[in-house]
Design a protein around this nucleic acid. Structure first.
Lengths: 334, 334
DNA sequence: GTGAAAGCGCTAACAG
DNA sequence: CTGTTAGCGCTTTCAC
């Protein structure tokens, strides 16, 4: 079934059918209806490849993500997929893993697939390194970065103020009397840098001394975090609260505390399903994926429809804290 | 940059370039090298839409999944994506949610996109209901079902013996002296049915009486599971172990037990990252996604390359148990 | 408002 | 082995 069949059945030319298909206003209402009727009745739908060839677009968005099996990224992918579908856009998912070389490779790869735009989920690229490949890709196709800040032409960042969120968390803890907060992190991508910076700012603003030994790099591998924390506890306890840059890290820390029969406030980050499953359930900084992702697709849609200048190059939302048992909402909370 | 440019630059016809592009053996080694050189040097890659139009294929696989934000499905998507990429296949991800109508809709949708095959992740369809839409879709394009059994032409099932896994879990518990196992589940899709059936078989085989009141439908919503279990504990404790049909359900049960200061063996299902994060860490039935997914893509590749009869219509792997603290490996374990 | 016809870039007979 | 050419199904000028 092709456009010719429909044209024949309607007694019009294929050009007219094409116009109807593309919502051209240069078709009389009468013929439009007739064509639509026949299309519906024959359950016709145009060949996407032919259409792609003609329009040089298949309304396909490339989604570049470090790892969908990670709960946080998975949620983002899920939200983005939903929004794209609403707008009649399809998505091609590419997971890159953590290797920077393969990330570059897949950027190139998506370009060859002639995707209409690329969405970056998480912070696959660091702003302080050589981003020439990103800049180059962005010359061909718009890039929307969710939760990382890339200040390059034709790249649009939609992110959460994670530094602010972290600073807020620190303030809540210090308000509650904590003076020595252990900070555990694993990555130094844009997001990781922001969080750490927010942590430092929070400590400084509370008038507390900077203690480098309480800022500890570890892994989100549970046994490794536990080991890290156990080692810190060893001779005497140098901290009275813990913040993890990821829920999973915070959970590892909880386990170590719990094994040592210690009860300290713990705060995680990402507010993933893991936070609910932890014992005690984990208070977590929520970086607003449920807002970021729709906003990112909004930006994308605007670019596709109205052109690159119609969209803000940066969109920033504030972080919030989701209180749970590991650090219940203090009475002052607003 | 088109195939004409390359042809010109090489002093050959576009047919020859096309042949090189498609690994035809009817090209002399010398011209092949020349063409390849020019292609590389110009960084040319053929227009995928034009190619799609000619071949009626863009080597695109449709992935139909209930919900990627679920840890289990996310892992499956991740594994499948990786395998497909290895084979030069792309994937389009569609999340359907739980509504059966929209599942049917998206099956139709993928067909219109002319995908080369469809992979079903999880058990989006129940085998006992009207699957005419599935059968109809399978007439046009092969369907690979991961972890559900659909006995229809051109549908290939790759699954784990979840009934066997559940029966094994029951045996381990009864061997350890448990006599009244509480079974908590939330869904009745193919997978859910298998697990329940395995549970019943395990109880029967252990020579224990069937106790319908210990088979309890609940939700994977944590507070709801906790409520369910609390209510069961109420007057007197009627069970001495718990199996949850999902890790998340088992974790809810653990929380209820823990709140009541009870310590009983708990086993979950799916062996997801949640199992590690639970306290105590959760022993879980592993349904072998890491084997199922590559196997599924193998089947798919075989069909695409060699035709539909080259692939087994059913591939079944045994389940295993991943022991953790909530029910440590018994000494008899083999 | 509508139709004829020229592409879009590639594949695959077919002929040599 | 290589080139010519007719499509693939649709979009889009350009006339009318």
């Amino acid at each position: 079934m092709t456009i010719y069949d429909i044209a024949n059945a309607c007694g019009v030319s294929i050009a007219t059918v094409s116009r109807v298909l593309n919502n051209s206003d240069k078709v009389s209402e009468k013929t439009r209806q007739k064509v639509l009727d026949v299309i519906r009745q024959q359950n016709y739908s145009p060949n996407p490849f032919a259409r792609g060839l003609g329009l040089d677009s298949m309304r396909m968005i490339g989604l570049l993500c470090t790892d969908v099996s990670d709960a946080f990224y998975a949620k983002a992918v899920s939200l983005v997929e939903h929004e794209l579908k609403q707008r009649g856009l399809d998505m091609m998912l590419i997971c890159t893993g953590n290797d920077i070389q393969s990330k570059k490779k897949y950027l190139q790869f998506l370009l060859k697939k002639h995707v209409d735009a690329i969405i970056l989920i998480g912070s696959p690229f660091r702003e302080d390194e050589d981003n020439s490949h990103l800049a180059e890709t962005a010359r061909k196709v718009p890039i929307i970065a969710i939760n990382s800040l890339l200040e390059l032409p034709n790249i649009y960042s939609v992110l959460c103020d994670e530094a602010g969120g972290m600073e807020l968390a620190v303030r809540k803890l210090t308000n509650a009397g904590c003076k020595n907060i252990l900070y555990l992190y694993d990555r130094t991508n844009y997001s990781g840098q922001q969080k750490l910076q927010g942590f430092r700012a929070g400590i400084a603003r509370a008038g507390l001394p900077h203690q480098e030994k309480l800022i500890c790099r570890t892994s989100r591998d549970l046994p490794i975090v536990e080991e890290t924390v156990k080692r810190m506890i060893a001779p005497s306890l140098p901290f009275d609260a813990i913040i993890g840059s990821e829920d999973q890290i915070a959970i590892g820390a909880q386990k170590a505390l719990s094994a040592a029969n210690l009860h300290l406030p713990v705060i995680g980050c990402n507010n993933s399903v893991l936070a609910d499953c932890a014992t005690p359930s984990l208070t977590s900084i929520d970086n607003r994926l449920d807002i970021l992702c729709p906003a990112a697709v909004d930006v994308l849609a605007k670019i596709l429809e109205t052109g690159p200048d119609a969209a803000p190059s940066q969109t920033v939302f504030p972080a919030i804290i989701q209180y749970r048992d590991s650090f219940p909402a203090p009475p002052d909370s607003r």
